[in-house]
Each structure stands twice: as C-alpha cells, then as structure tokens.
Deep mutational scan, measured.
Amino acid sequence: MDCGICYAYQLDGTIPDQVCDNSQCGQPFHQICLYEWLRGLLTSRQSFNIIFGECPYCSKPITLKMS
C-alpha cells in the first residue's frame, strides 16, 4: 500500500513500514513521512526516541519509535 502522507509506495528505497494502530484505520506510512508529520503538530510530544501524536487520517493516537 502507498504511504498516507506522500502517496508513494517507495521513498528512498523504503516501503511504508509504520501503520496506524487503530483497527478501523490501519493506514501505512513511511517512517520519515510520519516523523515529519508528527514534528509539525503542536500537540505531538517526544520522550527519548518515541514521538506521540495523532494519525493524519483518523486522528487517533499514534506513536513512532525512531531507530
């Protein structure tokens, strides 16, 4: 499936590997796309290497662990 942010399947050789945990959403994202999206939200917060925010599609909580 394509990334829900950039709408591409491959981005710099990677495929969407982050998925919204909401079973009714399940939208996939590239890690870098989701990172940039969450960084741009005023409501997002970060604790060590984990960013907490809202899914761009369903607005439910989503987390991103940076590797």
Rank of each mutant, 00 (worst) to 15 (best):
D12G: 14
I15N: 04
T63R: 10
D17K: 02
D2N: 12
K65D: 13
T63G: 13
P56R: 04
D12V: 04
C33A: 03
Q27C: 03
Y9T: 05
C3G: 01
Y9W: 06
A8R: 13
I5Y: 01
Q24Y: 13
L38F: 10
S23F: 12
C25E: 02
S23C: 07
D21Y: 08
K65V: 08
C55L: 00
P28N: 15
T63W: 11
L64W: 07
I50V: 11
H30P: 00
S47K: 07
Q10K: 14
L41C: 10
I50Y: 13
V19H: 15
Y35H: 09
G13L: 04
V19L: 06
S59V: 03
N22P: 02
Y7K: 15
I62T: 05
L41S: 10
S47W: 04
Y9S: 06
Y7W: 13
C55A: 00
Y35A: 06
A8V: 06
Y57W: 05
K65L: 05
Y9E: 03
Y7T: 11
L34N: 04
K65A: 09
L38A: 02
T43Q: 09
L41P: 06
Q24G: 09
M66T: 09
S23M: 13
P28C: 09
Q10L: 13
C25V: 01
D17P: 02
T63M: 06
T14E: 14
W37G: 03
T63L: 07
G13D: 04
D12S: 03
L41G: 13
G40C: 01
Y9I: 14
T14D: 11
P61L: 09
S44R: 12
E36G: 08
D12L: 07
Q18R: 04
G13A: 05
S59T: 15
Q18E: 13
Y57A: 14
A8T: 12
E36R: 12
S23A: 14
P56Q: 03
W37C: 08
I32E: 09
Q27G: 00
S59R: 15
D2Y: 10
P16A: 04
V19D: 02
C3D: 03
L11A: 07
Y9P: 03
N22S: 04
C58D: 01
Y35R: 10
I32C: 14
F29R: 00
C58S: 01
I50D: 13
E54K: 10
Q18W: 07
Q18Y: 05
W37R: 02
V19P: 03
I50A: 10
P16R: 01
P28F: 07
G26R: 11
E36H: 06
P56K: 08
E36T: 09
C58E: 00
Q24N: 11
Q18P: 00
L42G: 07
G26L: 14
Y7S: 11
G13S: 12
C6L: 00
M66V: 09
L34A: 01
R39P: 05
C3P: 02
P61G: 06
L64G: 09
P61S: 04
S23D: 15
T14Q: 14
C3L: 00
I32M: 12
D2C: 09
S23Q: 11
R39Y: 05
W37L: 12
L42N: 11
V19W: 09
P16T: 03
D2L: 05
D17G: 03
T43V: 08
T43C: 10
Y35S: 10
D17A: 09
C20E: 02
H30G: 00
P28A: 08
I62Q: 00
I62M: 11
I62V: 06
I32L: 10
Y57L: 12
W37D: 02
D17W: 05
L64V: 13
L11K: 10
T14W: 11
Q46C: 08
